[in-house]
Simulated assay, not measured.
Amino acid sequence: MATPLTADHLLAALRAEGVTVVEVGDWRTHNRDHKGAWGPVNGIVIHHTASSGTRDSVDLCYDGYDELPGPLCHGVIDKEGTVHLVGNGRTNHAGLGDGDVLTAVVGETALPRPTAMDTDGNARFYGFECVNEGDGRDPWPAAQLDAIERAAAAICRAHGWTAASVIGHKEWTNQKIDPLGFTMDALRARIARRLAAAARVTAPTAPFPGQDFFRAGTDSPLVTAMGRRLVEEGCSAYAEGPGPRWTDADRESYRRWQRKLGFTGADADGWPGTTSWDALKVPRSS
């Protein structure tokens, strides 16, 4: 079980995974929390919208309708591969499903066939609605499937989950058929490969040394390595350097990196944190 990501952390995780994100309206505070619990969270449910057109689909998922008020998910993934964030918190996407399925997701084990409708999925799952008519004929462009893979992998990575934490709506309840047009096993295989490949790539990177490391007048090759990565990311505030001693220029450069990831306010104060550090991928330094 996990505490839900904050809006800033969700946005940072998606962008760090290479997802193109559009923030819609007041998505950061748009939710159904007044109707029930949000969290602890255990996984991600993938849906199709049974609609066409990006704008209409995003509007529908943001606003909902009389019988089912919005938001209807956390993000809408369009056919061009853009994720439109429409909600943060409890959303009306999963509904009631099978508690045995939830148990399998928590344990990251094989899914049973859903038969019961005895568990509130809106409290326990992130949800992505993917623009598709859901008739088995509407195509799934490569860019859209890539974005679904990346978005799900981003949340899995943020929580330390495996691809087994990603399910289709039809795997949560026998009352639904979505998503239709690709198999969830194939999607989970793609997500697993992405998570495994990223683990291999990031193995040589430096782990987060803790905030005290930077607040103590640090003089270390790791600060230089961090500064070089900030320059590569277009976040430099350096007049010269970077060098091994932590300076105000390092903090301003890091603040720019936090803002690039989508952090705001106190979360973009220039002091490194675990999420932003992991996204920066600073090489190990001796």
Rank of each mutant, 00 (worst) to 15 (best):
A16S: 08
Q211E: 08
G87R: 00
R32I: 02
R215F: 01
R228Y: 10
P141G: 06
E252N: 01
A225R: 06
P209N: 01
L261I: 07
T115N: 12
E171D: 09
Q144P: 14
S286W: 13
G87S: 00
K35D: 10
A147N: 08
H159E: 07
T115C: 12
F208M: 04
P139Q: 12
T275H: 12
S236G: 05
D146Q: 04
D212N: 13
W27E: 05
A164P: 09
S165T: 14
A279I: 05
L96W: 14
Q144G: 13
G134C: 03
T29H: 04
A16L: 09
D248Y: 00
G39H: 09
G25P: 14
L72F: 02
H34E: 14
K170S: 08
A16N: 04
A216M: 14
K35Q: 11
D8K: 10
R124N: 13
G97P: 01
A197S: 14
I177N: 10
F213E: 11
E232L: 09
L68M: 12
R28S: 08
R245C: 14
A206G: 00
V131H: 05
N132S: 08
N92Q: 02
G134R: 05
H48P: 08
D146N: 13
L5T: 15
G210R: 15
K170W: 11
E108H: 15
L5C: 04
A94C: 05
W257K: 03
T20G: 08
A16W: 10
A147I: 13
K260P: 05
L145P: 05
R113A: 10
I77R: 05
E252K: 03
T29W: 11
D248T: 12
F125C: 08
H84S: 04
A147P: 13
A268L: 10
I167A: 11
T224M: 04
R200P: 01
N174D: 15
G95W: 14
A192C: 04
D267H: 08
Q144M: 07
G64R: 02
S276V: 11
V76D: 03
W246K: 07
L180N: 06
C235V: 02
L85C: 10
F208D: 13
A239H: 06
P221R: 01
D118F: 10
R256W: 14
A142D: 13
